[in-house]
Amino acid sequence: MVHLSYLDYLSTEGKSFLHHLSPGWKILGMLLVLSGIVLLKNLSGLFLLYAVVLGFFFATRLPLRIFPLTLYPLVFTILFLFISDFQIQFVLRVFLKVLSASTGVVLLLATTPYPSIFGVLDRFFPSLLVTALFLTYRSIFILLKVFEETQHALYLRGGFQWRHPKRSLVNLSNAFGHLIIKGIDSSEKMYEAMTLRGFKNKIRY
């Protein structure tokens, strides 16, 4: 999640051809990738799809340090592989689908500023939903800052140590509790500020 601000920076400061393309086309492209993932049947088709998405990733010259983000979702699929006998065909299919989707999403987020994405979504979905999404996305940055400060306090109080699980759990829970209370305080301030600016369940992007 700490990469979020870096992705945000890349999306606004990048100069590649994908950065200049309209957000609507990029979202459409992402939907095409998703359709491919859902509908493609054989391994060669899925390899081709991944190669295309990967080709776009390297063509836009995005920094390689964000590439591991595309591999992160593989961690979550391992549990599901128990449903098969870890058959190589099944594993490859699942991995290629995961990698195509995650690379596509990272590509979208690293080349499109998030207000532009929400602007497009606002045309097709209820504004309440998009507003909630926007506020959540904005709040992640606020909470990340609080989280960084809390982490320092946490380390000073012993942090998280496997040797002291009880104390560690209490520390971690207090940190989350602190995060929630700080978040609620910020949300009240945010609500007052938004009301002063005439907020009525809709944000104009």
Partner: peptide, 13 residues
């Protein structure tokens, strides 16, 4: 809504 955003952000974290 702002509270919802904050709670959702805490859940994402």
């Amino acid at each position: 809504l702002p509270l919802l955003g904050m709670m959702a952000a805490a859940m994402v974290l």
